[in-house]
Design a protein around this nucleic acid. Sequence first.
DNA 1: TTTCATGT
Length: 324
Amino acid sequence: MNSRWQALIVVLGTAVTCFLAGAYFQHDHATRQLQKLVQHDPYAYYVSSKIFKFQFFKIPQDKALSAQRVRLEDIMKYGYPGLDDIHLYSDFVLSYDRRNRVAHWVCEHLRADALGSAAITDRGRGRVRSRSRISYRPDLSVPSNFRAALADYRNSGFDRGHLAAAGNHRTHCDETFYLTNIAPQIGRGFNRAAWNKLEIYVRNLTLRYGSVYVFTGPIYKPKARSNGNWSIEYEMIGSNMVAVPTHFFKVLIVESKLPQGKPYMEAYVLPNARIPDNINLRDYLCDIREIEHYAGLQFFNGLRRSRIFGSNFPRSSQVFQNFG
DNA sequence: TTTCATGT
């Protein structure tokens, strides 16, 4: 009798232990799979916070993965302007436009400590060598029929212009050279002049205020037709037909160092064209609603911007004007 | 600081 009870207790104990162990390992496995999925699937990212709530056991998170998740949440702090074909990189997030073979938008979070001191002038010194070793390359995470190739840009007459600027990223600079982060830009008078000037301005803002969020992307601007309708015309380069945007935008959010300081927001739109050397960047300030209208994006999840941001608001925006 | 052209 006694020994039969003992045997029963041992059997039951073993069964319960095995069950708990099995449940634990299955839960551990499922959680890790979910953490991996979150890296590639924006939907999984959004629902993960709900799923992660149901934690029966305390499971140590994969350190590298959770660091990546923290970084992602940091970069996208002000929301996703769109959710089309999201690609995650170490230091920036990008939404890819398969039809045009150019990104919809790229988002970066720049910090003064990560930027270093080399960014203040437009004269390169020392660091140039590290960049010269990096080569442009197609992004294999895009299906080949939607992918831009090096040959598309060769002899096209256009520069391979960075959206997330190479100069913004010291440690993961190589990732900015994927063609997903590249768009055809007029070289002289734009990419190597006014656009570069804007990028330097953004880096200087970062060095001065410490923390700046940047959204960058293309615009394909419609023109008025004589019959009262509109039409869009833009070039495409190479056999993959990579679209040449008519304009590029940058939306900046400068975070204040003051304890109660509002973040400051401003937006720029520049035509992808030869721009005179002596321009004032302020002339290209733009109402963010125009960018949203033309690019089909929505910034800050549609929140009332005036409530959260101080901003530099142009009285009359240039986007509606025709640039020579 | 942006880039291009040429080759293996």
